[in-house]
Write a protein that binds this DNA or RNA. Structure first.
Length: 470
DNA sequence: ATGTCC
């Protein structure tokens, strides 16, 4: 443990404000699994203008571009900043859980066919495009309106919308803040999965920790669930790239003296900060629409192969910045919360939640690495009071992609999944090694920590039956 | 994460 960190409690470590830090940094994790580069990154975040309360690291923290992945930081909207590195390149990368309306036995009996059908319907892999064609006018409607626009176009049902974070639509956005290049990269990728850690997984609920909440969420022991993990593809990536460049070129003086160039940012109130916020929200809407279209394809697959309907459980964002209000030093303060590899975890009574989840708190989805468990949890008041309504987002890497490629073998991983009875279809062997379970922390441990800390609570555990990867 | 280097 670096000398700067003090243990404050079980899974709570504090780096007291020192040097250029404007606030403390708090690490919520077991110490053994953390790399020191990521700790330095959350310390760097605490030096940024307008940061309020504390910077937080979740138990799945690992090194990222500028900000660590698994980091949460809130900046005052009046004198704080917004930073593309605090959101991530895959803007509104997130996870959506579906539940199959019917017996597990039917799905298990047709698993191979089902995985194959989904693989045919959803384009996967780097740079993969879809056959769906949207006019520029429709594309503009989609990225400014999100999931509801594609539902209107026939991809899903109006009831889906209240089961998406922010109803799958973020209002503050203007298409004129999006570059032509971002449009070009994004126009043919709606309805595609992508690569890297993105996946579609068919799972079975093996354990329910809170039956009442599980019932509200629509799952029970033995339920078949489907997880979709993807984001805004080349569209969001280009928007991040564009605005990092604009901020570097146009805000030289403001960004002078950063502890790390990758922390490049704009004052939130500055026209460039507002333009990034707007373009980022276009990418967020794109990602919600993307997961909605993929849901439609999965529903088609289940209908044709099993004759079963599929319902939405919930859809969460884990790479995004949002304006929210919190009590800070007894004062209601409007902040721009950056959740990078962190999941919103609003508790019971939060007015931003639909009536459906008003009494329980919002569903939270924490996927594991390939072949391991995934969890459905519920948000808490404690998260709202402590971590700006945030919790972890996944297992978190322990090996970089390059290290994983060097140390692990795709064939062995394929065999291990086969032995476990998990059906895998993947576009590339490279993706398999990079996403091997050995390259990640143990998701069970991450979930145990957030549950014990009370920043979200376990509801159900799912294990994989079939995996589709890029 | 990503038309995995403009």
């Amino acid at each position: 443990m670096p000398k700067v960190a003090e243990k404050e409690g079980k899974y709570v470590y504090r780096v007291k404000k020192h040097g250029e830090m404007k606030t403390d940094a708090v690490i919520l994790s077991d110490w053994e699994t953390i790399d020191e580069e990521a700790i330095q990154q959350i310390i760097n975040v605490a030096t940024l203008p307008g940061i309020v309360k504390e910077a937080y690291a979740m138990p799945d923290i690992h090194w990222g571009y500028g900000f660590p992945i698994g980091g949460v930081a809130a900046f005052d909207v009046e004198d704080g900043i917004i930073s593309p590195g605090g959101v991530g390149f895959d803007i509104n990368c997130g996870v959506r859980m579906l539940v199959v309306d019917g017996p597990a036995s039917i799905v298990k009996g047709r698993l191979d066919e089902l995985v194959k059908r989904i693989y045919e319907l959803v384009p996967v892999g780097v740079g993969e495009t879809s056959d769906l064609k949207f006019s520029k006018k429709d594309f503009k409607r989609i990225v400014t309106g999100g999931a509801k626009v594609v539902v209107e176009m026939g991809y899903g049902q109006p009831e889906d919308l209240e089961r998406i974070e922010d109803y799958g639509s973020i209002e503050y956005c203007d298409f004129s803040d999006v570059s032509d290049e971002a449009y070009d990269r994004g126009k043919d990728e709606l309805g595609t999965l992508g690569a890297g850690n993105h996946f579609i997984e068919i799972q079975e609920v093996v354990e329910v920790y809170d039956p009442e909440i599980a019932k509200v969420f629509g799952v029970a022991p033995g339920s078949i669930t489907v997880l979709i993990h993807t984001g805004s593809r080349g569209f969001g990536h280009q928007i991040a790239t564009d605005y990092i460049r604009y901020m570097r070129d146009e805000l030289k003086e403001h960004n002078k003296g950063l502890p790390d160039k990758q922390l490049i940012n704009a004052p939130f109130k500055h026209s460039l900060g507002q333009a990034y916020y707007s373009a980022m929200n276009c990418a967020a809407n794109y990602a919600f629409a993307n997961r909605q279209i993929i849901t439609h394809m999965i529903r088609k697959a289940f209908k044709s192969v099993c004759g079963l309907n599929v319902k939405l459980v919930y859809d969460v964002a884990h790479n995004i910045a949002k304006v929210e209000e919190y009590q800070i030093d007894g004062k209601t303060t409007k902040v721009i919360v950056h959740r990078k590899g962190a999941t919103r975890a609003f508790g019971p009574g939060n007015p931003k939640l639909p009536a459906l989840f008003r009494e329980t708190g919002q569903p939270v989805i924490i996927p594991g690495s390939m072949g391991t468990a995934s969890y459905l949890l519920v948000g808490t008041k404690k998260a709202e009071e402590w971590t700006f309504g945030s919790t972890a987002h996944g297992a978190g890497r322990t090996l970089g992609r390059r290290e994983a490629t060097r140390e692990l073998s795709a064939d062995r991983i394929i065999n291990e999944l086969k032995e476990k009875g998990v059906k895998l279809m993947a576009k590339s062997k490279k993706g398999i090694v990079e996403e091997a379970p050995e390259a990640y922390k143990n998701v069970d441990k991450v979930v145990q920590i957030v549950d014990e800390l009370g920043i979200s609570r376990k509801v159900a555990k799912c294990v994989p039956l079939g995996v589709i990867k890029g």
